[in-house]
Amino acid sequence: MRKEIRLAGTGGQGLILAGVILAEAAGVYEGKKVIQTQSYGPEARGGASKTDVIISDQEILYPKARNVDILVCLSQKSCDSYLHDLVEDGVAIYDNFYVKNCASNHCFGLPLSVKTRGKFNREIFMNIVLLGALSEITKITQLDSLKKAIQSHVPAATLENNLQALDLGVEVVKSTH
């Protein structure tokens, strides 16, 4: 088993943290080999941002994704830039508010940002919502492992909201597909 996952969007959307949580869930709590890398601009917010997570049963040498199995896009630009890295039977998950155009064989357009705003009045938890959705669609990690990893990475005061955000991601997939 070897899966290459890329989460891409705009700086400030929390994608790199989502990548770290995903890698920790699979690596620390499920004993898989993982590598997480990132690419971002010098700006604190805005600009392109992406993180690659590779999950495998075997040692991982090259740390960047080359044949993306799962692509998550939270901006049109990231979708335009990275869709060609997706393997033929790869899965693309995108936010249908920020991304209008996504031409792939296995596309999941989800109302991630809309649902996040609906529940929390802001988008800050969208990165965790997308992890819930990702887990529900791809089964790449168990929800429990993600919960443990979230616990070690978010401030205690926001833990409850973050755990609810994870469940919201699962519900979004169940109600849309």
Partner: peptide, 9 residues
């Protein structure tokens, strides 16, 4: 930058 920012278990 790769080694510094890369995460592994």
């Amino acid at each position: 930058e790769i080694i510094g920012h890369m995460r592994e278990v």
